[in-house]
């Protein structure tokens, strides 16, 4: 196990830290699914699911965005369910959670140690959220309006890889600065 693995492991040792990671990851996942349009309103109060399109599971409707295979109604919510979109959202959520924990640890560390947090990782979460909206669901674009909308639509295929890069880079920079012991 390398020194960085050890440092990363110190981020999530206690039950509170695991809880915080799960909360941030889940919250981000839901936000991503909402902004990308997979999760939306329109439910009529029931709880049911149908999966009529498993054949489309690997079919992309945009870069890093896949065709739903099923429809899940959860009370007032409707989830057009794509396993790959969900995995992608969870991966992003996990990275955002780890970035958040690392930033918190660096912020709490004694100033005398010369440790400072990095906003890079958390900044990285934004392109992913924008990618969700820019790619297939116009909700975010409607909110943003001109002229950002037009520019984002053209860049949408780059936003998600950019988010993954920034989140990974931010985590790498912060874990390098973490002390090995918590």
């Amino acid at each position: 196990m390398t020194a960085r693995h050890l440092r990363l492991a110190t981020l999530v040792r206690t039950r509170h830290q695991w809880g915080a990671l799960a909360g941030i990851a889940l919250g981000y996942t839901l936000l991503y699914l909402w902004l990308s349009g997979d999760l939306a309103g329109g439910g009529q109060g029931g709880v049911w699911a149908i999966f009529p399109a498993w054949a489309r599971i690997l079919e992309a409707r945009a870069p890093f965005r896949f065709e739903p295979v099923g429809l899940i109604e959860l009370g007032p919510l409707v989830w057009t369910f794509s396993p790959l979109n969900l995995l992608l959202a969870l991966l992003l959520g996990l990275l955002v959670g780890l970035n958040g924990l690392a930033a918190w640890r660096l912020w709490r560390a004694p100033r005398t140690c010369g440790l400072r947090g990095s906003g890079l990782g958390l900044l990285g979460s934004l392109p992913a959220l924008l990618a969700g909206g820019a790619c297939c669901a116009p909700l975010l674009l409607v909110w943003l309006g001109l002229p950002l909308a037009g520019a984002l639509a053209g860049l949408s295929s780059w936003l998600l890889p950019l988010a993954l890069l920034l989140l990974s880079l931010g985590l790498w920079v912060m874990t390098r600065r973490l002390p090995r012991q918590g």
Binding site: A40, G42, E67, L71, T80
Partner: peptide
């Protein structure tokens, strides 16, 4: 339609 979409909702308004 052969596709899964949330047909109860218009994403534009």
């Amino acid at each position: 339609t052969g596709y899964v979409r949330n047909y109860r909702r218009d994403p534009y308004g």
